[in-house]
Measured scan of single mutants.
Amino acid sequence: NKFNKELQWATWEILNLPNLNEEQVKAFIDSLRDDPSQSANLLAEAKKLNDAQA
Rank of each mutant, 00 (worst) to 15 (best):
N1S: 02
N1M: 02
K2E: 15
F3K: 11
F3T: 14
N4E: 15
N4H: 13
N4P: 13
K5P: 14
K5E: 15
E6G: 03
L7Q: 05
L7W: 08
L7A: 11
Q8E: 14
Q8Y: 09
Q8L: 10
Q8P: 02
Q8D: 04
W9G: 03
A10N: 03
T11N: 03
T11V: 07
T11G: 02
T11H: 03
T11D: 02
W12H: 04
W12F: 08
E13A: 14
E13Q: 15
E13M: 15
E13F: 14
I14M: 05
I14S: 01
L15Y: 14
L15F: 07
N16Q: 09
N16T: 08
L17A: 01
L17W: 02
L17D: 00
P18H: 11
P18W: 08
P18D: 06
N19K: 04
N19M: 08
N19F: 09
L20S: 00
L20G: 00
L20W: 00
L20R: 00
N21R: 11
E22W: 14
E22T: 10
E22Q: 11
E23H: 10
E23N: 10
E23Y: 12
Q24V: 03
Q24A: 03
Q24D: 03
A27L: 11
A27M: 12
A27F: 14
F28P: 00
F28V: 02
F28Q: 00
I29A: 03
D30F: 14
D30W: 14
S31G: 06
L32I: 07
L32Y: 02
L32N: 00
L32H: 01
R33H: 14
R33G: 07
D34P: 02
D34S: 13
P36W: 06
S37H: 06
S37F: 10
S37D: 05
S37M: 08
Q38Y: 08
S39H: 14
S39K: 05
A40R: 15
A40Q: 11
L42Q: 04
L42R: 06
L42V: 13
L43G: 01
L43E: 01
L43A: 05
A44H: 13
E45H: 12
E45G: 06
E45W: 15
E45Y: 15
A46F: 02
A46E: 00
K47Y: 15
K47Q: 06
K47T: 07
K47S: 05
K48R: 13
K48E: 10
K48Q: 10
L49G: 01
L49F: 05
L49R: 05
N50S: 11
D51W: 13
D51T: 10
D51P: 01
A52V: 10
Q53D: 03
Q53W: 07
Q53E: 05
A54I: 10
A54W: 13
